[in-house]
Design a protein around this nucleic acid. Structure first.
Length: 292
DNA sequence: CGGTCTACCTGAAAGC
DNA sequence: TGCTTTCAGGTAGACC
């Protein structure tokens, strides 16, 4: 049962889009339940949790949506509607437990419902957020680009973005696909993995990539995100789905976290460069840097 | 205005 | 052994 040091390390990975989607899905048992009580143990997350969070008491949870890596929870009563915006940061999770389940370390908020369930917001590093949507949607949501799984996200879309905007044209492709104004929800893990699958060096200037190769890259981004959603998301020690189960997707990560190990395709040692202060692993043989 | 860097935070691992 | 340093990461905001 003991995990190897690598397994332990991989379990530190933060929630990316598939994990947020999995969380949204797993919260369905709370739909239509009424809030009985809210406990806030640590209000200081990325921003301070609103002091009037308990205004939700007596409201029913009516809808759970995802936008980028944000969750939007809609609560209503007979006359009013309140929307909560939640981000899991890099170590956050939302977990459902039976009423009476004990608070654990780093459980910062507990929402007690009237259907024998309670929701725990758990976030060791406190990079996440719990906010009223009305207060923050201008700042946090309005600038966001398209969803990676939307039909509008295509190789042609990326090609146009790259060639129509001078400030983008020469950026490393990895920076580009991680920019939230262009496409949301592609974090370091999935950017790294999809570039490996598409055989594109992460530092390749965006305008050096053909439309055809951008189409291949987009296909892999969609594919890897979809597979991760199906599998229930990347797991980590900190992350569990709302039902308390862990995912297993981390076992299929090919290059992320494998710096120095043999490439799974060709056995060349996996290399690592920093791009925008972020580790970027790649295979120097499978992903050659094409200068033109 | 665009591009780059830092702050926020904790825990694990590495360094001393 | 135990203390200190480093590192990981999403993203708004500071900075040049």
């Amino acid at each position: 049962m003991a995990l190897s040091w690598r397994d332990e390390w991989l379990e530190q990975i933060m929630p990316e889009l598939p994990e947020v989607q999995t969380t949204a899905t797993s919260l369905q048992p709370l739909l239509n339940a009424k809030v009985k009580q809210i406990d806030v143990f640590q209000p200081q997350l990325r921003w301070r949790i609103p002091d009037n969070l308990s205004d939700l008491v007596t409201y029913q949870l009516k809808q759970i949506e995802r936008r980028a890596k944000y969750l939007i929870l809609t609560f209503t009563n007979q006359t009013d509607e309140k929307k909560l915006l939640i981000h899991l940061g890099m170590s956050g999770s939302l977990q459902q437990h039976p009423t009476g389940f004990e608070k654990r370390k780093h459980d910062h908020v507990m929402i007690h419902f009237d259907n024998q369930l309670q929701l725990h917001y758990h976030d060791p590093r406190r990079f996440g957020a719990i906010l009223w949507l009305d207060d923050y949607q201008d700042k946090l949501l309005n600038h966001l680009g398209i969803e990676p799984l939307d039909n509008a996200f295509t190789g042609e879309y990326l090609y146009k973005k790259i060639h129509n905007q001078n400030h983008i044209i020469k950026k490393p492709i990895k920076s580009l696909i991680m920019e939230q104004q262009i496409v949301v929800g592609v974090g370091n893990i999935y950017a790294t993995e999809s570039l490996f699958l598409a055989k594109i060096h992460p530092l390749t200037p965006a305008n050096h990539i053909s439309l055809e190769n951008l189409q291949v890259l987009v296909k892999h981004i969609k594919d890897i995100l979809q597979k991760a959603i199906v599998k229930g998301g990347t797991t980590l020690k900190d992350f569990t789905t709302g039902e308390g189960k862990t995912g297993y997707f981390q076992q299929t990560l090919l290059v992320y976290g494998h710096h120095g190990e043999p490439c799974p395709m060709c056995k060349t040692p996996i290399d690592n460069v920093k791009i925008n202060q972020r580790a970027s692993t790649f295979c120097p043989n499978c992903q050659p840097l094409v200068e033109n």
